[in-house]
Design a protein around this nucleic acid. Structure first.
Length: 931
DNA sequence: GCAAGGTC
């Protein structure tokens, strides 16, 4: 069997189809992996890297004394499978193979992915022949020739990729751990560092600093308005920007009629058709359509998987010779672009446009099939149309413009006006994404005199550089060689998810700035794009076998050790700087009580706003738990309290905007305050004026403090405190009820808990005890279904029973036994005979009597007589001695309070029969036997 | 828990 390993499933399929020719390809799905077989060949696709490098075991604890962040530099690495199913399948197939061909992409990573596959094969089949097919596009011609003359795997090329892997891991992981530990950040709040992400972040931070430090310069622009044949014309002073106000004023004053045309220059300009799309150019164009980089890529991948466009991750801007451009034009016919295609076919430029970058891995992004608007939906259609139109534009002629430049003289002051007219739209006919702005000047001739309608001197200011948009940043990253076509947009996503940057255009957060500053000061290598360039040079040398992988990695290790020398020396200072600078991120504004800063605090799953004056000032505002989202400060400020607004953010959910935390705190507590019978509007206002907002604050106060705060008498203060305690109790019970219902009847679509709780409250059900006594009809009215209502009632009753018994003093261990014996309600204790309770629970009857006594006293009921253990045992033997009575009957008799011969003799057969279900006749037999 | 690189 000939095993062919491709880089991904879709290429495996295409390679199989091409190699099979007219033969039918059998696609077999083995679990989640598909193989494509024909003749004696089987093609299987990887998923890019199916193994990853990691440190050898023993380095997982970040705080280990032995395996410090620095020790990662010299730690050994291992490769571990990340796609187990594929790894297993490859190895299963390898055992049967007599030839293996690696057919991964033709680039460094592709060679490395190929080598990974090679090692997987070798591990289970040490002798099989393994060769390599290299092709730059999956077209019949390329694929056939690649398989007709296969080569060997290029181990030097793969080693270059491995060097990158090792260097990235050791720098990234060791520095990430060091900085995170220094700033005491763990879990979701770690501070990551990396060869690509850190310089990218630094660019955003640098740009922000430039903007902050920008000093605007004032300048003046001078223009005049004239007209000819009713057409208004604006001419600018040839001096352009005046930086000297006096000079501008002088020129303005000197601008007088006569205005004479001194020169008219006619020219021509060509407007080059755009070059084929590589990933970056595509992302930039898509961003003009309002799509974020990640979104554009997601949609492009989707279109690619469905056969509408070619592979969207490419650096290539030149169509390869093997690409059948005419064939694609034909394939696109029969849809929305027919007119455009026909025009392009008629006016085809002889050679398609080409960009600066030409690579071998994939062709530029181009359409591969016709699509219907309805089948794609709005966003996907937008992207598809962009790709189609771009393709058409690259085959269209350039646009041409006729230009006019006119010079004027206004009594010695020189002016100019320029005009442009689109002579031939060319590619612009099919690619309408940028506007062709025409400005047609009237026909002027030298010597002609014109009127001056007005002279305008405008004062302007120079502008700071713009923040990076996502697409602009991706362009700059590409220029600097940071990241790859597949990873650039992901890097930006990573910076956002680490909360280093936010917004679009991108702004750094305080954390982002603090980390960049710390690295800039102590480990600048990692914040500079230079590191990537050096690495690439070294990789080049490895590819050319001028240096070894080991040599390059060791040099990098040395450098990283020197970086750590510096870092470790300043560890404390680095940590403190970051912590200090980022504290502000959590500060929301002045404490209403003491004026110090209020800060958002995160403590595991709970979060709140507390005063930095704690414990002197105990003012705090509670926030919903972090399952509802992490609390962050926003830009908005409350005009009344001067506090930043707060928002809860959670992945995959829209943010929950709380607004001013104090306004929200007040609003959500006012209702609770009003639950206190003596509370009045006026009192609420007085409480607020003293920064007392919650019932629990009042409940926790001393009467004296409240008298001072509100100016009320001590009796009233005492009463208010008692009322607050009561209100607190009611609230506590309500919240308990809510949690209880949520646990038994979880919320789901169409069953709003807010609504259920509100309805129940309106029906007077405010705690679990009231719920246990509720009429099922009421629950149904509140929006709980029949089955759920029954379950809820039962659970509530059980809980209330258990509570009553516990409150009466029944120990928890015994309670468990009663519940297990199904005699767990207070009524069971009061009305069931002690022998029965004892036999159901295997608890000593004297102990049962003690418990029954507790419960009866607690409920104000009479306690039944005691039965000793000895008496019970003796009685049992008496009963068992009677013919026809066995263990089961004894237990039933217990239910009627009969536990010995004496009690049986005096029993009323009729009543006992109805309780125990033993036929009257048999009871009479027992009794007569005794007699 | 860490990077960057493939791919989905």
């Amino acid at each position: 069997m000939h095993l062919i390993i491709a880089e991904k499933n879709i290429s495996a399929n295409r390679i199989a189809q091409i190699l099979a020719g007219n033969e039918k390809v059998r696609a077999v799905k083995e679990g989640s992996v598909t193989t494509y077989s024909f003749d004696t060949k089987t093609v299987v696709g990887l998923k890019g890297h199916v193994v990853e490098v990691d440190f050898e075991p023993g380095y997982t604890n970040w705080r280990s004394e032995v395996h410090t962040p620095r020790s990662l530099i010299d730690a050994g690495t291992v490769k571990k499978p990340t796609e187990k199913k594929i790894v297993n399948l490859i190895q299963k197939l390898s055992k049967k193979a007599d030839l293996v061909t690696i057919a991964t992409d033709y680039d460094t990573e592709g060679e490395l992915i190929g080598k990974e596959a090679y090692e997987l094969v070798r591990a289970v089949n040490p002798t099989v022949r393994i060769n390599r097919a290299r092709f730059s596009a999956i077209t019949p011609a390329e694929i056939r020739s690649a398989f007709e003359s296969p080569a060997d795997l290029d181990f030097a090329l793969a080693a270059a990729g491995e060097a990158r892997q090792t260097v990235d891991l050791m720098w990234g992981a060791s520095l990430t751990r060091f900085i995170s530990l220094a700033a005491r950040r763990g879990g979701k709040n770690i501070l990551s560092v990396g060869r690509v992400q850190s310089p990218t972040l630094a660019m955003i931070v640098d740009r922000e600093r430039e903007i902050e430090n920008f000093v605007p310069q004032t300048y003046w622009m001078l223009s005049l308005a004239t007209e000819k044949d009713g057409v208004p014309v604006e001419a600018r002073h040839t001096a352009g920007r005046f930086t000297d106000h006096d000079a501008a004023l002088a020129a303005e004053a000197g601008t007088k009629e006569p205005l004479v045309v001194t020169d008219v220059k006619e020219g021509q300009k060509t407007d080059r058709a755009p070059t084929p799309f590589d990933t970056t150019a595509f992302i930039v164009a898509a961003s003009r359509l309002g799509l974020s980089a990640a979104n554009a890529m997601r949609i492009a991948e989707d279109l690619y998987m469905n056969g509408y466009i070619s592979y969207p991750r490419t650096d290539n801007t030149v169509y390869p010779k093997s690409l059948n451009l005419n064939g694609i034009l034909e394939a696109l016919r029969g849809g929305a672009f027919d007119a455009d295609i026909a025009w392009v076919q008629q006016h085809r430029r002889p050679v398609p446009t080409r960009g600066k970058k030409e690579s071998t891995d994939h062709p530029p992004i181009h359409p591969t099939g016709a699509a219907a608007r309805e089948a794609l939906g709005s966003d996907r259609w937008k992207v598809y149309e962009l790709v189609v139109r771009r393709f058409l534009a690259t085959l269209s002629p350039d646009a041409t413009w006729a230009t006019t430049k006119c010079l004027f003289d206004a009594s010695g002051e020189p002016y100019t006006a320029t005009g442009g007219r689109l002579v031939s739209a060319g590619w612009r006919r099919v690619y309408p994404y940028s506007e062709a702005k025409e400005n047609i000047l009237p026909a002027f001739s030298p010597g002609e005199r014109l009127p001056i309608k007005s002279v305008n001197l405008e004062e302007k200011q120079t502008q700071p550089p713009a923040r990076y948009s996502q697409s602009r940043l991706i362009q700059v990253m590409e220029e600097l060689g940071l990241g790859t076509k597949s990873t650039r947009h992901e890097v930006i996503g990573k910076l956002v998810s680490r909360r280093y940057v936010e917004g679009n255009p991108l702004r750094p957060t305080l954390v982002g700035r603090a980390v960049t500053e710390a690295l800039d000061n102590h480990a600048e290598t990692i914040t500079e794009p230079e590191m990537t360039r050096t690495l690439e040079e070294h990789m080049q040398l490895i590819k050319q076998k001028q240096r070894s992988h080991k040599d390059v990695v060791n040099e990098s290790r040395e450098m990283l050790h020197r970086v750590f020398d510096k870092l470790e020396e300043h560890e404390k200072e680095i940590g403190e700087e970051i912590m200090e600078q980022t504290a502000e991120e959590h500060t929301v504004g002045p404490c209403p009580v003491c004026g110090r800063d209020l800060r958002i605090r995160h403590l595991g799953a709970s979060q709140f706003i507390g005063c930095t004056g704690y414990p002197e000032c105990r003012f705090n505002i509670s926030l919903p738990g972090s399952i509802w989202g992490r609390a962050i400060r926003t830009e908005e400020t409350c005009p009344e309290h001067g506090l930043s607004h707060v928002r809860l953010i959670r992945k995959g959910s829209p943010p929950w905007t709380i607004g001013c935390p104090l306004c929200s705190h007040i609003a959500s507590n006012v209702e609770a305050l009003r639950m206190m019978p003596s509370m009045t509007d006026e009192l609420v206002q007085r409480l607020h004026a003293r920064h007392i907002y919650t019932v629990s604050e009042i409940a926790g106060m001393q009467p004296g403090n409240l008298t001072d705060a509100l100016g009320v008498g001590s009796d009233e203060a005492g009463r208010l405190i008692e009322e607050a305690k009561d209100a607190l109790d009611i609230l506590r019970r309500r919240s308990e009820l809510r949690k209880f219902i949520r646990k038994i009847v979880p919320p789901r679509k169409g069953r709003s808990h807010a609504k259920i709780n509100k309805n129940l409250l309106e029906q007077g059900i405010g705690d679990i005890s009231a719920l246990s006594r509720a009429d099922p009809a009421v629950l149904k009215k509140a929006g709980i279904g029949d089955a759920a209502a029954t379950e809820l009632l039962e659970a509530a009753r059980a809980l209330c029973n258990e509570r009553t018994l516990r409150e009466a003093g029944v120990p928890a261990v015994s309670l468990k036994k009663y519940l297990a014996g199904e005699v767990g309600s207070p009524d069971d204790f009061c009305y069931l005979p002690i022998p029965y309770l004892s036999s159901k629970t295997a608890i000593n009857p004297e102990t049962v009597h003690k418990h029954v006594d507790m419960v009866c006293r607690y409920l104000g009921r009479p306690t039944p007589a005691k039965v000793t253990k000895a008496a019970l045992e003796r009685g049992r033997e008496e009963l068992l001695a009677i013919p026809g009575i066995g263990e089961a009957t004894v237990e039933r008799l217990y239910l009627a309070g009969i536990y010995n011969a004496a009690t049986l003799r005096e029993a009323d057969a009729e009543a006992v029969s109805s309780i125990t279900g033993i036929p009257k006749a048999r009871l009479h037999d027992y009794i007569s036997h005794l007699k």
